[in-house]
Design a protein around this nucleic acid. Structure first.
Lengths: 122, 122
DNA sequence: GCCGATTGACTACATCTGTAGTCGTATTGC
DNA sequence: GCAATACGACTACAGATGTAGTCAATCGGC
């Protein structure tokens, strides 16, 4: 259970991590419109997430309320690991270096990361 | 051209970034065995990479020597951006936080990241 | 010069993914 | 009560992906 979610599915799952439960219509409005998906598409993604065991559907009257069934930290951690393995041979600093070069790091990001590192070293 | 490489394709491309040119047989021996792929599979991945314009094939006698045709920094940067967008809403520090929590950061990583940040701030 | 090994070209095929559409039913506004 | 609508179940379908196999040509060793 809890097979990997595809990229699109991950967007939906992400929205559920941010707020849950949500209905298909809710998600269509937020994630759907953000990605240019119709309600039908969002429903399909939800169905697949449920089938993969990444999301649970709880009946509320005639409709369902969806909730994440996997832990965000776990899922995100797994993905991150795969990602750094795949592109950086498991090394994290080259990733940071790339993000920095691409100016993908805001001042806030930098400050936050520094704070994190301080905590890590203590 | 230069469409996105799939995960498996990326492994091959990555090997070419590390060393090039290489033949299909070379790659099968390294990336192939590392992933449990046969020579045939590696050849397919190479063909797809060439078709996508991510790798060039230069004939050397009866065989080809493959070289990356896309810049590593560019490709990796794009992937990284997509990745942080997808899982962290574009914010980098949560990614670092997760990696840190998973103890995926070595002391060396931390030191390197700090050095990077110092450079960024100057 | 012949034979086995090598190599690219082409083909195969199940599954996953992205992106919906249809349909029957239940619900709700009037 | 009936019509419009909302909802889930099921179906559709092309393209991407993972994973290889076949085949014909060729090269290298004997």
């Amino acid at each position: 259970m809890a097979e990997r979610a595809s990229e699109s599915e991950m967007q939906v799952l992400s929205a559920l991590w941010d707020e849950s439960p949500q209905t298909a219509a809710d998600l269509a409005e937020t994630v759907g419109t953000a990605n240019g998906w119709t309600l039908a598409t969002v429903k399909t993604l939800l169905a697949r997430l449920v089938q993969k065991g990444a999301v649970t559907a709880e009946a509320e009257g005639r409709r369902y309320r969806y909730r994440p069934a996997v832990d965000r930290a776990d899922a995100v951690g797994d993905e991150s690991q795969r990602f750094v393995d795949r592109l950086f041979g498991g090394r994290v600093s080259p990733l940071i270096a790339h993000l920095a070069e691409r100016e993908a790091l805001s001042d806030t990001d930098i400050a936050e990361i520094e704070a994190l590192l301080r905590r890590l070293k203590s």
